[in-house]
């Protein structure tokens, strides 16, 4: 490399003036890391190194060595400790994936197979598939549907390459309902318990109690939320903590729903059921519980004295399902045991 540089540099030296000569000499003095590295490289391969000598093999006795130790090694010598901090994707010491039991963020479970889940697998799912089955005779052709996002039709030259028009009657593009097969039977994906505590804007104790109550009934840690914007009529100020949410998934969600249906809801006075018009038109149903109803949960009831009775919150409960329409979701929720009242809106 250096030689090559010299060779190419030689005619230039002849042609150019003293300043150029000085520059070329400076390039000559530059150190090339790769060239020095080649000199430092070992000629012998590690694969060709001989085996350890006889006496090393004979003296190697790890069991005896561990017996000889009077004090045990600290646990850190036995187990892998994941890093406490995540220092970015380029850091050499990466934390393990959260699904790895050694990870700091690992959440163990599930610990039980909930009764409701078993019922779903054995009874509800096949029933739902049968109920939602539509028979098409052989040779049936589905009528052509109008396009979901319409193209711009007309003589105007400006219609060319325009983005497609939105759906009629609104901006929302509804979910497509596919025929239900064994692959996409509606199932419960989770439950969200949410409570906005109005009084928390003056006294944070209300929110603390609400969090405790919701944690007790849901088995998960709650998350608190701040007000996004100020609303003068409600006396709400931006940045104040006013609401708490608990997101339940799989095991917790099933336990919570079955507890609701079996024990809590039947005890509510004059409870008619879920409103027939509930739902966000994409398969998530919602209902509310008053503070008196929340107090009926067995976890609250067992030490009712722990909670200040006026601070027990009411809450909204949102049941998330994989159903694409409210109709399917209602079918599933009804099979689980939630009654509905009023006009059913699809």
């Amino acid at each position: 490399m250096v030689l090559y540089e010299l060779r190419t540099g030689a005619p230039a030296i002849l042609r150019r003036d003293a300043q150029a000569l000085f520059q070329s000499t400076r390039t000559c003095c530059r150190r090339y890391a790769s060239s020095t590295a080649t000199e430092e490289l070992e000629q012998t391969s590690s694969f060709s190194t001989p085996d350890p000598s006889e006496d090393i093999i004979k003296n190697y006795d790890p069991i005896a060595r561990s017996r000889k130790r009077s004090v045990q090694l600290p646990p850190s010598r036995y187990q892998f400790r994941p890093p406490k901090y995540y220092r970015g994707p380029l850091h050499p010491h990466q934390p393990p994936h959260p699904s790895d039991p050694s990870s700091r963020e690992f959440i163990p479970g599930p610990f039980t197979l909930p009764r409701l889940e078993q019922t779903y697998e054995s009874t509800i799912a096949p029933d739902l598939m049968t109920l939602t089955y539509t028979h098409f005779p052989p040779g049936y052709r589905a009528p052509e549907k109008s396009e979901r996002l319409r193209t711009w039709r007309g003589d105007s030259p400006y219609f060319k390459n325009r983005p497609l028009r939105g759906p009629r009657g609104g901006d929302a593009l509804r979910l497509l309902r596919k025929p239900i097969t064994f692959r996409n039977i509606p199932r419960i994906t989770g439950v969200t318990i949410h409570s906005m505590v109005k009084e928390a804007k003056e006294d944070s104790a209300y929110l603390h109690v609400a969090g405790m109550v919701m944690q007790a009934i849901s088995n998960v840690k709650v998350k608190t939320h701040v007000a996004k914007s100020s609303v003068a009529q409600w006396g709400l100020r931006e940045g104040k903590y006013i609401s708490a949410t608990a997101h339940l998934k799989q095991e917790d969600a099933f336990h919570f729903l079955s507890k609701c249906v079996d024990v809590v809801l039947p005890r509510i006075k004059d409870w008619k059921g879920l409103k027939g018009s509930t739902g966000d038109s994409s398969g998530n149903l919602n209902f509310g519980l008053t503070p008196e109803a929340v107090a009926l949960f067995p976890e609250i009831e067992i030490n009712y004295d722990m909670y200040p009775p006026k601070m027990i919150p009411g809450c909204n409960i949102i049941i998330h399902t994989t159903a694409r329409t409210d109709r399917d979701a209602r079918l599933l929720i009804r099979a689980i045991g939630f009654p509905f009242y009023g006009k059913l809106v699809d």
């Binding site: 009764r115 095991e251 336990h255 067995p298």
Partner: peptide, 12 residues
């Protein structure tokens, strides 16, 4: 039936 709960009472 059995379920998991935060309540320490064994039988409800």
């Amino acid at each position: 039936f059995l379920h998991r709960t935060t309540s320490p009472i064994p039988v409800y």
